[in-house]
Amino acid sequence: MLEKLRPIFTDPHVRGYRIWHDVVMGFIFFSCAALVLESVQSYQDAYAVWFDWAEWISVAFFTVDAAANIAFAPNPWRYLFSFWGFIDLISVLPSYLMLFNLTAVRSTKVIRLLRVARALRVLKLARAAADQAEGAERHETNPLAANLKIYCIVFFATLMLSSTAMYFVEGHLYDADVMQAEQQAINAATPAGQTPATYMPTDPLTGDPIPEDKRFYTSIPAAMWWSITTMTTTGYGDMFPVTVGGRMVAAVTMLLGLILFAILLNLINKTMLILLFGEKHGIE
């Protein structure tokens, strides 16, 4: 029975392999959508149970996928410490750590880090991109269509990772839970009869205050708008990082946007050569 399942996880040329990895991609998008919506406080408060169900359904599926990949690998231990094994591990480990509620992960900051770390499972799309590239090289599919799919996969992964990084690096400084906890600490430390000061979030590296009108990245969807405008243009101008960490994320996002733009121009150039001048795209 297990040997019959082996091609589904090891042979890119069988139909079962392609179907399974299409399902994997579906769960990745489903999981990322749940993570994005969960970062909106109003949605989190209203649909917390549904988000929990969505997460654990995804984790159960990714666990089966990871276990199968390890079991059917020629060398399971080598696979476990390979790039693909690392991706399989990070796709499930953060959720299991939160489930176990270990002492080391009970702090609010660590829990938040584990939550946003789930966005790294978008890297599992790298295998889908690799499969598309392999198919194009073997002329099993239209190279232009395959390259466009690869571009969309890379663009989505970049968008997801950059917006999540910005939300965690800068947005968590004025997250509602953090603001409430810090304000309570100030209130508790203020002597009786005195009016407690209002908590002001600051850049952890420079100590510069972050005024209310500069607190842009309150959720991943908000950060996604910034990420899209940063990757596709010089920036819309309505949102910008004000911390050192946020500016570092922005710098990397800009550079990735330039690379993606160059790739897109190359795809458009190849398409125009084929459509307007009849140049063949290599399919025999």
Score class of each variant (00 low, 15 high):
56 W>L: 08
72 F>Q: 15
2 L>Y: 15
1 M>D: 14
219 S>P: 06
63 T>D: 15
64 V>C: 12
118 R>M: 09
98 M>E: 15
90 I>Q: 05
139 H>I: 14
117 A>H: 02
54 A>D: 03
2 L>C: 11
260 L>G: 00
166 M>F: 01
163 S>P: 02
258 L>A: 15
168 F>S: 01
210 I>R: 03
268 I>W: 00
82 S>E: 07
221 P>F: 04
146 A>Y: 01
12 P>S: 12
184 Q>H: 13
254 M>D: 12
112 R>Q: 09
78 R>L: 06
93 L>D: 03
253 T>I: 11
212 E>W: 13
13 H>F: 06
143 P>F: 03
69 N>I: 09
10 T>K: 00
153 I>T: 10
203 D>I: 12
107 S>Q: 07
145 A>M: 05
52 D>K: 15
7 P>S: 09
118 R>K: 11
3 E>H: 14
107 S>P: 08
113 L>D: 10
246 G>Q: 00
223 A>I: 13
171 G>S: 04
122 V>N: 00
258 L>T: 13
77 W>Q: 15
118 R>W: 03
8 I>G: 14
207 G>A: 07
210 I>W: 05
125 L>I: 02
161 L>C: 04
170 E>V: 03
276 L>A: 15
41 Q>L: 11
108 T>V: 12
218 T>E: 09
189 A>S: 05
223 A>Q: 05
